[in-house]
Design a protein around this nucleic acid. Structure first.
Lengths: 126, 126
DNA sequence: TAACTGTATTAATAATAATAGTACACTTAG
DNA sequence: CTAAGTGTACTATTATTATTAATACAGTTA
């Protein structure tokens, strides 16, 4: 389910966070679906449970998952209009990247087309 | 010219890279304009010259600046159609962020509007 | 020549990432 | 209730990376 690059300069727990976010955003992991447990995933990836926990803690902070003692960790269903801070943050990052793309010569038309495609395939599996 | 957060978890040299890219992309720093020297900027920010050098080296690798022994470091004018790898990389990051925005409920229309604004103000100062 | 530039190297320290081991509280199936 | 699973917390240790420090060298320019 996960592929890690142990020799990357990017910390393992950050790679985990990115992969998880990707799976959640692409709805491979559905709302309220249970994630692999800290120990189970650690064994599967042959890394330390503490590293998994660090990733899960961060994902919970960012609002992507929720955890319950004794039960497990689950995908957090988005509550519209609730994550205003997060949305603003993402918009800011987007603005920076969009400016960079335009600076590099990417045409606005191409960006519009990209959005259109992504929006169309939203929720539609892949 | 630069504001650093020394107690941030983000390394100083990465903060420097981000600030520089921002200034270059927003054309506050013009093509072929000379950047502050390694030692000068280090003294101004009261950090080590090696840290500045590390940032400059990375910026050069990423194609944003070029450096010449004995002369200085300068903003690299973009050469259209040359930075294909970089463009692809930025597009990939963009796709991830756009998906996240859509997942959080941001409307496609809003994204289109954002691009339109950014594209319109391109090169027009701020 | 003198005073700038970038660049390279080595060493030491500070900060962070990752592992290891243990413990506790909670949930659930038996 | 018990056993085995869950998340969570904590301390300690090691490995990796970031940062500083001090030089040194090569090129440029007034």
């Amino acid at each position: 389910m996960f592929e890690l690059d142990l020799r990357s300069r990017k910390p393992i727990y950050e790679q985990l966070i990115d992969k998880m976010k990707e799976l959640i955003i692409n709805e491979v992991l559905k709302p309220d679906e249970q994630l692999p447990s800290v120990r189970q995933l650690a064994q599967q990836l042959t890394i330390n449970p503490n590293t998994i926990q660090k990733a899960y803690r961060e994902l919970e902070l960012q609002g992507f998952i929720y955890s319950q003692k004794g039960k497990g960790s689950f995908v957090n269903p988005i509550s519209p209009g609730k994550d205003n801070e997060k949305i603003e943050q993402v918009k800011q990052e987007l603005e920076k990247l969009l400016l960079e793309a335009l600076y590099l010569g990417v045409q606005a038309d191409e960006l519009h087309a990209l959005i259109k495609d992504l929006d169309a395939s939203k929720g539609g599996g892949k």
